[in-house]
Design a protein around this nucleic acid. Sequence first.
RNA 1: GGCGCCAUAGCCAAGUGGUAAGGCAGAGCUCUGCAAAAGCUUUAUCCCUAGUUCGAUUCUAGGUGGCGCCUCCA
Length: 464
Amino acid sequence: MALKIYNTLTRAKEAFEPLEPGKVKMYVCGPTVYDYIHIGNARPMIFFDVVRRYLESVGYEVDYVVNFTDVDDKLIKKAAQMGVTVPEVANLFIEKYYEDAEGLGVEKATLNPRVTENMAEIIAFIDSLVEKGFAYENGGDVYFRTAKFPEYGKLSHQNLDELQFGIRVEVDERKENPQDFVLWKAAKPGEIFWSSPWGNGRPGWHIECSAMVRKYLGDTIDIHGGGQDLQFPHHECEIAQSESLTGRPMAKYWMHNGYININNEKMSKSLGNGVNVNQMLESLSPQLIRYFMLSAHYRNPLNFSAETIEQAKNGLARIDNCVSNIKHRLSTAGDGDVDPAVERAVRDVQTQFEQKMNDDFNTPDAVTAFFELVNAANLHMQQKEVSRSSLERLLQQFEAMDKILGILTKAEELLDDEIEQLIIERTEARKAKNWARADEIRDLLTERGIILEDTPQGIRWRRK
RNA sequence: GGCGCCAUAGCCAAGUGGUAAGGCAGAGCUCUGCAAAAGCUUUAUCCCUAGUUCGAUUCUAGGUGGCGCCUCCA
């Protein structure tokens, strides 16, 4: 089965066919770098990382661009608060972004362009829109003339007449129409600015993505993604700008991930329930966070709570245990071919994994494939004699799937000498049937976070 | 007011026009010196009502409940 992607534009799953065979051009709206990234940012980061890895694993060459919005009202405000410049704020949080992204096991995008490095392109873009009559200047601001773009609303399936403008934010009286949006904002005294044909100012929010998509990936790209809240107005405006200018579709497939709730509530500043990624990483492993994020379908909401995290922790431990148990078994395994039952199980799991990923990136079912493999491996290891090749075949399959999801705990730490000695001593004690001493040592190590397990193949240890 | 989304076991979560995967938690058993890990067994009138159909949890309509967006929040 070939890959299918749910396209927000058509509200249907569509067969994925890249514009250019073998290549995928993908753009995901990145963060506004005015603060640490939070758990809500982490979802698209992890999900689209998985999309990108999967596309690469099936042979596509992926051009993956994620931008930084490094100038806007929030940055200006933050800079004032911190008593530093806007670029200083941006640089600080871009640095933090990279730390957190790495902490989440997110692979680096092909490119992370910044707004401020693309001013010339942005101004030229706006200029062309003005020239073509899609935009107009008023008092140093430039607005997009939505009336000139009849398809405005096609992504979010909104009817312009029905939208309620000015409910949430006051309508600027300099606009011809309330639905017009700003392309260029005149600078207020003391604000950071760039000079332009319309005077000193800075870009509106939406124009940056239009300009950078075009510059780095082209007039039409394959996949454009982001959080579902970006659907309207952000992506809608991008479409209006780009398609007015080029006369071509901006992107073939539009993908939007759902929200993360915290204890069943929307995460918001006013509730003060935000969770930053760097805080989260203090107590949760990257693999656990990824496992958690991928355990629900990307278009569905996902609830972050002590309970759901605990469940994820226990679920992931089952998979990790299995993998480390296979590795432990390796040292005592014999020669011989891959067991036919193992071979069959591995193939079934691989097929299942691919089918589910092909079905609009059904990661919850892809995780289920891990559990199927766990069960097959555990059953196989109940046998007295197993071959190294069978175990390696199983490990290979775990790794193949993990290359895409990135959920297996990697750490293969060594034990320090003292612990090593205690384990040896315990082995002796057990031989001598000195159960008291054996239990004492086991308890001692448990306190230090080492769990000992006696198996027919010797003592196995793992960290709690 | 407009446009949408969601409702599956104690919890999390897939899925299908032919009576429902997987995980967590719980219970019992097996294995174990005791454990752990693992295995086995066990837990669902798929929100309500009407309709379409031989047959609906799955499609349609209505209802109830929860949620999102409607100009700068991923």
